[in-house]
Design a protein around this nucleic acid. Structure first.
Length: 554
RNA sequence: UGGGGUGUCGCCAAGCGGCAAGGCACCAGGUUUUGAUCCUGGCAUUCGGAGGUUCGAAUCCUCCCACCCCAGCCA
């Protein structure tokens, strides 16, 4: 974590107080995803809050799947979620937990509530139930089944559990107050009949508890001290507390809410993300353009950068939209410090050095300009190189700090050269540049005092490896694609992906393993694709470009 | 016209009665074999608004305004 730059937030203050007052001796948190989709940047925030707080205060954090709705869940997600959390660098305490492993206890507690006269079986259909619930401004009405006897309720509940009724035929509801101003307190549903196969419990249950009846009790069973969730659950807190107060639970967890993380230029709703995949706007859930954790991983984002970003954004109770530039900054900051440098020419233009022999000894260059501990690399060198076509012009004004005919430029990590000629094809297109190498300029300025205009990158023709480079940009052109107004699908950035097939990378980079990151100097940060990269056919994904103040002026 | 929240610089965000941290973005310089990095400086006389309490308020009180969430047998 950054030295002393982390600011305080209400959760840290709260936990520090709870620890100081001995209200708790060790904090216990949990990250409780429902295994019904891929994790995204918003979940990364929640993971960072829960695991981060536990880590910071010497507590523990567990991973618990809130799998109370089998129809939407699957083993695939259980696995991807674990992989994502682990990749972010967090380890949960003990085994992975499942709400479904508490189904017996939860059911027993349901019977307990019935016995106490605090829950009843309702025969209202979903439509009728909605009608009886009232509206935001009108109180609801009691269900005609609300006053059934304890015995009848118990019998009905047991028969629900035994599978005697059809899906949707009855539900178990808490008997609270149908006129309560908080809709969640208007006799909330505890169990619904769903004869669905569950990925963990198989066909053992024809009824499943709702989120409200399960979550707080799961927390209590696990000894969670601080149950941290997002703001939209705030209205559920009275209910969360009602269950904890009315059930013989073994501990008293408390719920706290924070504002969910939103970033500009991105969408995170499951529905929208799915639409992007289904309509082939992106290739998959882990497409580098996706804000999913798997997508960011494939894009080359680092766990450390994502964690740092979550920390720098802070945790509060206000909802806002964080500028995605902040995330990009965190990525650049990490990669600038840690990614070894390499050279890759995206748009090759042949450069012939007329005064160099074919067999020039390789040049040794540092892997990182300011971190000698990252070692060195060998750059083959000869009389035939490739530079980027954008780095050469026959004529240019003084602002053009690259190679100009008749002028000098430094080849990064190598010599200063001077362009002396241009080769063109029949159509008049430039197909090559001829230059002279200025002797004695390896590590030194030219002796004649005529300094080069700038520095450009290059690769040696015989050793460079042809590579596929995938250049990425933000998926949307609008800062708020999620905001009502226009359909988000009309705000897609057509240039979010540009594939460059004929790029040339220095041999050392081509030889790197999958997921190895580099800064291709003057181009940006790149990662060897996790799945497609091969030494003889390299595939690099651009993680993020270098900051470029010149771009605005050009 | 119900309930629950939130409003501090363009964007996040500290602050909790003593006179506005920090980060991102942006602007201006300097260094530089990456038009990168790095370094220096600038960037809220003001805290949604109006009243009030106080020697003193972003912080306390009152009223008002704006925005977000809630009427799934989703989480």
């Amino acid at each position: 974590m950054e030295s002393g730059t982390t600011s305080n937030n209400f959760l840290r203050t709260l936990i520090a107080e709870d620890l100081k007052s001995r209200k708790v001796t060790q904090i216990v948190t949990r990250f409780p995803p429902e295994p019904n989709g891929y994790l995204h940047i918003g979940h990364a925030k929640s993971i960072s809050v829960n695991f981060g707080l536990a880590e910071e205060f010497g507590g523990i954090c567990r991973l618990r799947f809130d799998d109370t709705n089998p129809e939407k869940e699957s083993q695939e997600f259980i696995e991807s979620i674990q992989a994502d959390v682990a990749w972010l660098g967090y380890s949960w305490e003990g085994p992975v937990r499942f709400a479904s492993s508490y189904f017996d206890t939860l059911y027993r507690w349901a019977e307990h509530l019935v016995e106490q006269g605090k829950a009843y079986v309702d025969d209202l259909s979903p439509d009728e139930a909605r009608e009886y619930r009232g509206t935001l401004t009108e109180p609801g009405r009691n269900s005609p089944y609300r006053e059934r006897s304890v015995d009848e309720n118990l019998d009905l509940l047991r028969r629900m559990r035994a599978g005697e009724f059809a899906d949707g035929e009855r539900v178990l509801r808490a008997k609270i107050d149908m006129a309560h101003p908080n809709m969640n307190m208007r006799d909330p549903i505890l169990y619904r009949i769903r004869k669905a196969h569950h990925h963990q419990t198989g066909d053992a249950w024809p009824i499943y508890p709702t989120y409200d009846f399960a979550h707080g009790q799961e927390d209590a069973i696990e000894g969670v001290t601080h149950s941290i969730c997002t703001l939209e659950f705030e209205d559920h807190r009275p209910l969360y507390e009602w269950f904890i107060a009315n059930l013989p639970v073994e501990s008293q967890p408390r719920q706290y809410e924070f504002g969910r993380l939103n970033t500009s230029y991105t969408v995170t709703s499951k529905r929208k993300l799915k639409q992007l995949v289904d309509e082939s706007v992106v290739a998959s859930w882990d497409d580098p353009r996706m804000p999913t954790i798997a997508g960011m991983r494939r894009r080359g984002y680092t766990p450390a950068a994502i964690r740092h970003f979550c920390e720098m954004v802070g945790t509060s109770r206000s909802d806002g939209v964080v500028d995605v530039a902040m995330l990009e900054h965190a990525i650049r900051d990490d990669l600038n410090q840690n990614a070894p440098r390499a050279m890759c020419v995206l748009n090759p233009l042949k450069l012939t050095l007329r005064n160099v022999t074919e067999a020039h000894p390789a040049i040794v260059a540092p892997a990182h300009p300011s971190k000698p501990e990252l070692g060195e690399r060998e750059l083959p060198f000869s009389n035939t190189l490739y530079i980027d076509a954008d780095d050469f012009r026959e004529e240019a004004n003084k602002k053009f700090k690259r190679l100009v005919l008749g002028k000098r430029v430094r080849l990064r990590n190598a010599y200063v050269i001077e362009a002396v000629g241009v080769e063109k094809d029949a159509a008049g297109e430039i197909v090559g540049v001829v230059a002279d190498l200025i002797e004695g300029t390896l590590g030194n300025d030219p002796e004649d005092g005529i300094k080069p205009k700038g520095v450009i990158h290059w690769v040696e023709a015989g050793s460079a490896v042809k590579a596929t480079i995938r250049l990425y940009d933000r998926l949307f052109t609008d800062p708020a694609p999620d905001r009502g107004g226009a359909d988000f699908m009309t705000l897609l950035n057509p240039e979010a992906l540009r594939v460059v097939e004929g790029a040339l990378v220095e041999p050392g980079a081509a030889a790197a393993g999958a997921e190895i990151r580099f800064q291709f100097e003057r181009e940006g940060y790149f990662v060897a694709d996790r799945f497609d990269h091969r030494h003889d056919a390299p595939v690099f994904n651009q993680t993020i470009g270098l900051r470029d103040v010149w771009a605005d002026k050009a």
